[in-house]
């Protein structure tokens, strides 16, 4: 049933594989030499140092978390020390407060609003400096992105843009409303790996991998090998 169970080892970062941009994160982890693992069943959570909840549709992912009974095991792994990073839809799922709807995992004290910029025509790319993450400005991709409207006292704001917060973290949770996995930026994945207590390949210190292309994810979704 589950190929992952055979070679479970510690020191890996999982990517929640219910719907959305799973391959994009796995390819970024591969670039950093970090072991990545798809998380589809509760046993896949065993011994994970961290878990990435990817972009996708938050209502879909949250429904699947509930009906396939992954939510409770995921929260148990979190309480046992697994760090969690939510990107875009993932940031909505980790938030303690979601405008107009019930919060899902509620593990970081932020208030977030879904699809806060408008339609796809309002999606955009920009650059910003996040001093905690890298010394150079990083490319940020916002796709029908949410906005973090408020952060609690135990939450560190990593990036504020205009009237909203774009990245924030607590001791155990990182939330970004943009998609580093849709750019060549590997600095946030490196930062999260460090937060999980993992070491990344030392020869890759750069914030941006010049070899990244938007088609890079297709390597994990080939029709012909």
């Amino acid at each position: 049933m589950n190929n992952n169970q055979k070679n479970i080892k510690s020191g890996a970062i999982g990517v929640l594989d219910l719907q959305g941009g799973v391959f994009e994160h796995l390819i970024h982890l591969e670039r950093l030499g970090v072991a990545g693992r798809r998380v589809k069943y509760p046993p896949d959570l065993a011994n994970l140092a961290g878990l990435i909840i990817p972009g996708g549709e938050s209502t879909c992912i949250s429904r699947l978390l509930n009906i396939f009974e992954i939510k409770e095991p995921l929260l148990a792994a979190y309480r046992a020390g697994m760090k969690i990073w939510g990107t875009c839809a993932g940031a909505i799922l980790v938030a303690g407060e979601v405008t107009g709807e019930q919060a899902c995992l509620s593990i970081i004290d932020i208030a977030i609003e879904r699809n806060s910029f408008g339609s796809q025509l309002d999606s955009f790319q920009k650059e910003a400096l996040i001093p905690e993450i890298a010394a150079e400005p990083l490319p940020l991709t916002f796709i029908r992105a949410p906005k973090i409207l408020r952060a609690g006292p135990d939450v560190n704001i990593l990036l504020k843009v205009d009237d909203y917060i774009a990245a924030a973290e607590s001791d155990k949770v990182l939330a970004t409303v943009f998609h580093p996995e849709l750019t060549g930026c590997i600095a946030l994945h490196r930062y999260f790996a460090k937060k999980c207590g993992l070491t990344t390949e030392t020869d890759k210190k750069t914030a941006i991998d010049p070899l990244w292309k938007n088609e890079s994810w297709t390597k994990l979704a080939r029709i012909a090998k």
Binding site: Q19, G20, G21, F23, G55, G56, C88, Q125
Partner: peptide, 18 residues
Amino acid sequence: AKRHELNIQLAQMLKGGV
């Protein structure tokens, strides 16, 4: 080209969905 890339990427975020 940037806009086109964003549009391809929105579809990527729909993967595995209905």
